[in-house]
């Protein structure tokens, strides 16, 4: 009973806020609705008993990814009139994407009704960690059975990270001011940085 109420509550908010992501005119509002959707999806995960996934969803998506979204969107100066002017030009593309999504949904529902796909061991049974907490079960699978895939995923992310750094890194231009050396700054003493002068009246100081 309470599970059903909670499920419909979370699910309704996820769907409604997903609609509002598209509906709202202001991109900042869109991101905020997206965050609400993430948060309620985490609630659905808790209902499924996947509390570890739920927490990761909040930490990674709400706590880091969406903050960066918000960060970028807040600083953009978006011309709403120009955005709406492109509607007729982008409509065919949008319709095509909507059609593909609809086809995928129908396919997924059909496949679900035809019986789930069995993945995992060669004899067609899925690996299921029995009677362990979320973290232990996931850890045993990720660091045991799927260790190679997990490491490959890690290396792909590392390559992406290095790629991003390489793309955005600009070596300092020749002749530009030297890099900050904190040690040098801290070790500077007043006698190296200042000069005492006692100029005669009306003559000024030459530096």
């Amino acid at each position: 009973m309470i599970q059903a109420i909670a499920f419909y509550f979370f699910a309704a908010i996820v769907v409604a806020s997903a609609v509002m992501v598209i509906w709202s005119r202001n991109p900042v509002h869109s991101v905020l609705w997206l965050i609400l959707a993430f948060f309620n999806a985490a609630g659905l995960m808790v209902l499924l008993g996947a509390e570890f996934i739920a927490m990761l969803l909040v930490i990674v998506y709400v706590g880091a990814v969406a903050v960066l979204f918000l960060f970028v969107v807040m600083m953009l100066d978006i011309d709403f009139a120009a955005m709406r002017a492109g509607f007729s030009r982008n409509a065919p593309l949008g319709l095509a994407i909507a059609g593909i999504l609809l086809a995928e949904l129908l396919l997924a529902v059909g496949a679900y009704n035809a019986g789930g796909l069995t993945l995992g061991t060669p004899d067609g049974t899925a690996v299921q960690a029995a009677d362990a907490t979320n973290i232990e079960a996931l850890g045993a699978l990720l660091y045991g059975r799927y260790i190679v895939l997990f490491e490959i995923a890690g290396i792909i992310l590392l390559v992406a990270m290095i790629g991003a750094i390489v793309l955005t890194f600009q070596p300092p231009k020749p002749g530009a001011r030297a890099r900050q050396d904190v040690g040098k700054q801290i070790s500077r003493r007043p006698e190296e940085a200042t000069v005492m002068k006692s100029p005669p009246v009306g003559q000024g100081v030459e530096l």
Binding site: G116, T121, T125, V127, Q128, A130, D131, A137, R145
Partner: peptide, 13 residues
């Protein structure tokens, strides 16, 4: 649960 590639704790889905 100790799941190793050699002997996975395979349970019927």
């Amino acid at each position: 649960v100790h799941t190793t590639p050699a002997q996975p704790t395979a349970v019927k889905a």
